[in-house]
Amino acid sequence: MDIFIPIGIGFALNIAVYIIVFFIVKNKRLARATPFISTFILILISFIIGRWIGMGLAVISLGMLVAAVVTLVASFFHGKEINNISKN
């Protein structure tokens, strides 16, 4: 069960990155791309560092990847709702 702590940290960190970028830039496309970019940067850093610390960073990046997919799916369905409301 201890594996869920770093995954939760990564999830919360990437949601925070998404919210900060969305409110600063006001661009949905950039806000959706930023969590994926930060995830892949952390994965690269974890491979460069290696050892146990790198493995811990890789687990955190797994949580970040989950958060990036969740934000992508949520923004996709949110866009569908807006399109359906505007058509009626």
Rank of each mutant, 00 (worst) to 15 (best):
M1F: 08
D2L: 14
D2P: 08
D2S: 15
D2E: 07
I3E: 10
F4S: 03
I5V: 13
I5K: 07
I5E: 09
P6Q: 10
P6S: 01
P6V: 04
I7M: 14
G8L: 14
G8K: 01
F11D: 02
A12H: 06
A12C: 07
L13T: 10
L13Q: 06
L13W: 02
L13I: 09
N14F: 05
N14M: 07
A16Q: 02
A16C: 05
V17E: 01
V17Q: 12
Y18D: 10
I19E: 11
I20M: 10
V21L: 05
F22T: 06
F22V: 00
F23C: 07
F23V: 13
I24G: 03
K26Q: 12
K26I: 02
N27V: 03
K28I: 11
K28P: 01
R29A: 12
L30I: 14
A31C: 04
R32V: 11
R32N: 15
A33N: 11
A33F: 13
A33D: 10
A33L: 15
T34A: 14
T34R: 04
T34F: 03
P35F: 03
F36W: 15
F36A: 12
F36K: 04
I37N: 01
S38D: 01
F40C: 00
F40P: 06
F40A: 05
I41H: 02
I41L: 15
L42P: 02
L44P: 01
L44E: 06
I45V: 14
S46T: 01
F47T: 06
F47N: 12
F47W: 05
I48W: 08
I48T: 13
I49G: 05
I49T: 06
R51E: 14
R51S: 15
W52S: 10
G54P: 04
G54Q: 04
M55V: 09
M55T: 13
G56M: 10
L57N: 03
A58D: 06
A58P: 00
A58R: 07
S61M: 07
L62R: 05
G63Y: 09
M64H: 02
M64L: 03
M64W: 04
L65Q: 08
L65S: 14
L65E: 07
V66P: 03
V66I: 15
V66E: 08
A68L: 06
V69G: 00
V69N: 02
V69L: 15
V70N: 09
V70G: 00
L72N: 13
V73I: 14
S75Q: 10
F76K: 15
F77R: 09
H78N: 14
H78Q: 13
K80H: 00
K80R: 12
K80I: 15
E81I: 13
E81D: 09
N84L: 15
N84R: 15
I85A: 11
S86W: 04
S86K: 15
S86H: 05
N88K: 11
